[in-house]
Structure formats: C-alpha cells, structure tokens
C-alpha cells in the first residue's frame, strides 16, 4: 500500500520559550518533528514492513523545515516532498489543509496519515479538513492501525469519548494518529546516512497553482498575541510520618477545601 505521512516541523517544547510583549520567543532555534507525526510515520512504516508498500512524507514549511523531513527519511520513509511557503504568512490549519489538498490532488495514494494535532497549536483540525477537501473517508485520534489483507480495508482503532471504536475504512482514506499508538523509532546512524541519498523534492507552493493571495484567502483565523498561562502557586508541601501528613491532608480537604 502507498502511504503518505503529512509531517510538520514544530518548536521543541522542552527548549527555552517565553512570551515577550505578546510575541512568543524561542530562545534557541530548536525545531523538531511533531511527535504525533512521528507516530504516524512509525505506524505507516510498521504496516508497510508487514504488508508491503512504501511511505512518503510531505511537509509544508519554510526552508529550514528540510531537516525535519530528513528525520522522517532517516526513520525509513522512501521519499520526501517539501512545499515551501514564504515566511510571514500566518497559515492556520485551514490554510495548510488547502495546500496539502492541492498537493494530493496530483498524487497517488492509499492512505494519508496525519498527526492528531500539532504539538505547537494543539488544534487538531488539518486532518479532517484535508479529508473533506479530498472527499475521502477518515478516522481521527487513532491509537491502532492495520490493514486487512483479504478485504484491503484499513482498520482503525480510535480513542473515543468513552471506550474505543474499531472502524473499517476503504482506501483511499485518511487517518490522524495519536502518539499513544507507538513509540517512534529513533533514526540510527545508518538511517541518517541513507536519508541523504533518498529522493527529496522541494517545490514552491506556487507550483501547485497557489499564489500568496489565495493562501491569505484560506486563512480564517488569526493569532493576535500570546500570553503566559496564569500559573498556580504551590501550596502546602507536607513531609514526615505518613500517619501525620495523611491526617493533616484529610483535615485540610474536609475543613479548608471542603471537598469531602
């Protein structure tokens, strides 16, 4: 089967970051592969290793996003396509979905895997937006994925509100992946070395027939500023004999917090 993974470059949440006059400042230019996309790539690799087929990755971003695409190739994807956009246009999920849709209109695929959300925006929209634009069935928040050799159906286990749903989708389809589905492999040195020799296209978004003016018209929401999440102050920390501190706690819960 032919898999495409949509991958995104996101800032490293573990790296130093802060808000300064409404702007989000990343003190070190640490960028990485969106963790959910890493799981999507991993899952696609596992399936193709089992049932045959191959995995390509596609990424929309700035020039520097290249290294992130390379990481996916180092994991084992066979080909990368990077769709470069101008810096400064603040695309939202709808914008990215339009670009990806334009790309897939000209691509052959059985399954598109996305992350369930971007680690940076936590939006979780692009996948289902893209599926709609391509008029293909989809399932989101997958925690398990497989292909039924016999029927050729794509089997998705998705995490719902209560319990999990096991769904069958006909290819071509789209699945958004939770990082609970697997632990993505860390590229080996050999993998990294091979990644450099794998086919990698960098195409400008214009070659998909999209001008900046169009892109701007896709954008339906905009971020006007950032702020720190109002923090919680640490309360009472109790150390000592279990008996004593438990007594203390129950007393506090009962009389101070009144939650019992």
């Amino acid at each position: 089967m032919k898999f495409y993974a949509c991958i995104k470059q996101v800032p490293d949440l573990a790296g130093p970051m802060r808000v300064k006059d409404n702007e989000l400042i990343q003190d070190s230019d640490r960028l990485m592969l969106n963790a959910y996309d890493a799981s999507a790539v991993e899952e696609a690799l596992v399936i193709t290793e089992k049932h045959g087929g191959d995995v390509e990755v596609v990424l929309v971003g700035l020039e520097k996003a290249k290294e992130t695409a390379r990481k996916a190739l180092a994991m084992g994807a066979s080909k990368g396509t990077m769709i470069t956009i101008d810096d400064g246009l603040n695309l939202d999920s709808a914008g990215y979905a339009e670009i990806l849709a334009a790309f897939f209109k000209g691509a052959e695929f059985d399954v598109i895997v996305c992350g369930k959300q971007s680690q940076d925006t936590d939006a979780g929209l692009t996948g289902s937006m893209l599926a709609h634009k391509l008029q293909i069935p989809y399932a989101s928040n997958a925690v398990g994925l497989d292909v039924d050799e016999a029927s050729g159906m794509v089997i998705v286990k998705r995490q719902g509100d209560i319990g999990q749903e096991i769904i069958e989708l006909p290819a071509p389809c789209l699945v958004t992946c939770s990082n609970d589905m697997n632990d993505p492999r860390i590229p080996t040195l050999k993998g990294i070395m091979q990644s450099k020799r794998k086919p990698f296209d960098a195409i400008d978004v214009k070659t998909l027939g999209l001008e900046s003016s169009d892109l701007n018209s896709f954008i339906k929401t905009k971020v006007t500023g950032y702020r720190n999440t109002p923090g919680r102050k640490p309360g009472i920390k109790m150390e000592g004999e279990p008996e004593d501190i438990v007594k203390q706690l129950v007393d506090l819960l009962d009389n101070e917090a009144k939650v019992l």
């Binding site: 808000v19 925006t121 950032y226 702020r227 999440t229």
Partner: peptide, 13 residues
C-alpha cells in the same frame, strides 16, 4: 491553551 497549555494564544476570527 497551546503548546501543552504552556501558553495562551489570543485567537480571533
């Protein structure tokens, strides 16, 4: 809340 609720993004439409 964005980035695992590290920050809040003022978003409008």
């Amino acid at each position: 809340p964005i980035m695992a609720s590290k920050f809040l993004a003022d978003t409008e439409s």
